[in-house]
């Protein structure tokens, strides 16, 4: 069955092409990393600069969300082919997570 993988033999040209493609992908990863660092810097700066709480909290939560999207979709390749089911379960998990957190921060103390 599927235990035995198909043997692949790439020609020199194919191999070079794939290698280049991977290198280009890797440059993309570097860009996402730069963005993550940048977002983190903004978040810390905002807090250090002591702006109003009502301004900072939504912004840094948004920045965190963007970072997580970068991690999931770039570093963890969730956008790749064959990740549909995984994405579905991750989002279901996030949905339950969201419900739990909302419950605890709103109705626990009433």
């Amino acid at each position: 069955m599927a235990h035995d993988t198909h043997d692949i033999h790439r020609s020199r040209a194919e191999f070079e092409f794939i290698k280049k493609k991977r290198a280009a992908e890797m440059r993309g990863q570097l860009t996402s990393f730069a963005m993550m660092i940048f977002l983190t810097l903004i978040a810390f700066t905002l807090v250090a600069a002591d702006f109003s709480t009502y301004l900072i909290v939504p912004i840094i939560l948004l920045l965190a969300a963007i970072q997580v999207v970068l991690q999931l979709y770039h570093f963890m390749h969730m956008s790749n082919k064959g990740h549909g089911m995984m994405a579905f379960f991750m989002f279901s998990g996030m949905f339950v997570a969201f419900m739990t957190i909302i419950a605890m921060v709103t109705i626990v103390w009433w």
Binding site: F89, M90, G93, A97, F98, T100, I101, M104, V105
Partner: peptide, 18 residues
């Protein structure tokens, strides 16, 4: 498993916030 971990950490975050 990561989806389950998401819920696990959400529970911990929720408790922390409360």
């Amino acid at each position: 498993l990561l989806a389950a971990e998401t819920v696990t950490f959400a529970s911990l975050f929720a408790t922390y916030l409360a």
